[in-house]
Design a protein around this nucleic acid. Structure first.
Length: 424
RNA sequence: GGAGAAAUGGCAGAGUGGUCUAAUGCGGCGGUCUUGAAAACCGUUGUCCUGUGUCCACGGGACCGGGGGUUCGAAUCCCUCUUUCUCCGCCA
């Protein structure tokens, strides 16, 4: 959510910037400014009357104590009309404030100045790439056949237990999954992140804080009886730890790493490219989250990109880092880098991480602020997060890229975690 | 799940209808004293909205778990929700 101050002061700048996201904001902003001025109008009148009412009430208190009953009665009569007027103003105010809020939350976050305009994946900018694309034999299999061959992940069984997109990991497949989670968490802790294990269901306030609600409830599974949502990413509970708090400036940046299962309904997104592990309703992910000082948040973003890069590179996977164009970026993001790894048998790039700076957009929803030492004013923090990493596509790439005639080689860095170096 | 009690500033804790502009203590910040520190003493203290003046103040309004109500006036009374604690029941 953009701050109302910014909208008041930088209207034209906002309209220009949002064009990079292909978002025409002029009409909304004009409506916002109109509602805002009518809100302040009503508020100043009603505050003035409230002040008057408070004064009279205090007078009545004094008169009563002095036993001047008649004068107290006269004073009381003066309050009736005031009370009525205040009530009618506040009745007017409620819809104005609701409309104002509903309009403000329709505005997406402003893209960072380095973001190019564009409409989709083709307009993204390749920042850099690394690793070597393996040359596989003609007989190389896609991962959905490999997992069947080695009996390590069972989709049919998941369908029986729950439904499509809820796989069962078995034997060395389960161990590989657990090894990756441990490896990612340990690397995060080594890089100075504090590990947290959050709830995997959240309430409505949390969903609002990070921007999933009110518009994207269709993407999340909900527990309607208790009004909870299954998290689509650890970003939601971990960032909401800092909802409604005022931090010390010198505690920033706060760095958290969390493993959670993630749940996504993926309504309407099933198509040709979603076989096997490419898209699931439940998957494992390790997420890094930062609460950063606004003056240093882009340094934080760079550090997070380097951290994720070290993970894919140590797993020996060929990767590229894309800076998303305006049209491909999420509603809440200012700047996003996507990590893609090469899946050798499918011969395509798979997105395995998305690292974003949300600047103050989530912080304004979360009311997460900080105060620098000696400062009287609070400021909004910047929030950032990134997958480090999402597991299923990493598993798919490892399986496909590392397949040999005699089995699948486990990346060296994982062997201490798996206890085996080949899946056969 | 049943019965009872409670929720007040960063923390502890007073306040049961009107100078509450929320006591007091601790903590924090600034200062005096000191070679330095501690102790002592003095001062200060939250958040949000809004207006004037314009980067620092001043004025008005709101906030005592959330929401609603009674009243000229609510931390205080009423309703409701949430959370916590105690006891009972159930349970990995």
């Amino acid at each position: 959510m953009l701050t109302i101050n910014l909208i008041r002061e930088q209207k034209d700048f906002i309209i220009e910037r949002l064009k990079v996201k292909n978002f025409d904001s002029e009409e909304i902003i004009n409506k916002i400014l109109l509602l805002d001025s009518s809100r302040r109008d009503i508020l100043s009148k009603s505050d003035q009357m409230q002040g008057e009412l408070n004064r009279i009430s205090k007078e009545i208190g004094v008169l009563m104590r002095e036993g001047k009953e008649n004068e107290a009665k006269t004073a009381k009569e003066r309050t009736y009309k005031l009370k009525e007027d205040i009530r009618s103003l506040s009745d007017k105010l409620i819809p104005v404030e609701n409309d104002l809020r509903n309009e403000i939350i329709r505005l997406p976050n402003l893209p960072h100045k380095s973001v190019n305009p564009g409409h989709g994946a083709d307009d993204n900018f390749k920042l850099r790439e690394g690793g070597k694309i393996p040359a596989l034999s003609e007989k190389a299999l896609p991962h959905w056949e490999l997992i069947r061959k080695y009996d390590i992940i069972d989709f049919e069984l998941g369908i029986k237990l729950t439904g499509a997109g809820f796989p069962v990991y078995k034997g060395k497949g389960a161990k590989l999954e657990r090894a990756l989670i441990s490896f990612f968490l340990d690397e995060g802790v080594k890089a100075g992140y504090t590990e947290v294990i959050p709830p995997i269901m959240v309430n409505e306030d949390s969903g609002f804080g990070t921007g999933q609600l009110p518009d994207k409830e269709g993407q999340m599974y909900s527990v309607t009886l208790d009004n909870f949502y299954l998290i689509p990413t650890a970003e939601v509970p971990v960032t909401n730890i800092y909802r409604d708090v005022i931090l010390n400036g010198d505690s920033l940046p706060i760095k958290n790493v969390a493993y959670t299962p993630c749940f996504r309904r993926e309504a309407g997104s099933w198509g040709a490219h979603v076989r096997g592990l490419n898209r699931l309703h439940q998957f494992d992910k390790v997420e890094i989250v930062r609460i950063a000082h606004p003056d240093h948040s882009y340094e934080s973003l760079d550090e997070m990109v380097m951290h994720v890069e070290s993970l894919v590179s140590r797993l020996g996977l060929p990767y590229r880092i894309m800076r998303l164009c305006g049209g491909d970026m999420s509603f809440t993001s200012s700047l996003t880098y996507d990590f893609e790894v090469w899946s050798a048998a499918q011969k395509r790039w798979l997105e395995v991480s998305s690292v974003s700076n949300f600047e103050a957009f989530q912080a304004n929803r979360l009311k997460c602020r900080f105060k620098d030492k000696g400062d009287k004013q609070t400021r909004l923090v910047h929030t950032l997060n990134g997958s480090a990493l999402a597991l299923p596509r990493i598993v798919a790439a490892i399986l496909e890229n590392n397949q040999t005639g005699s089995g699948i080689n486990v990346p060296e860095v994982l062997v201490p975690y798996t206890g085996f170096n080949i899946i056969d």
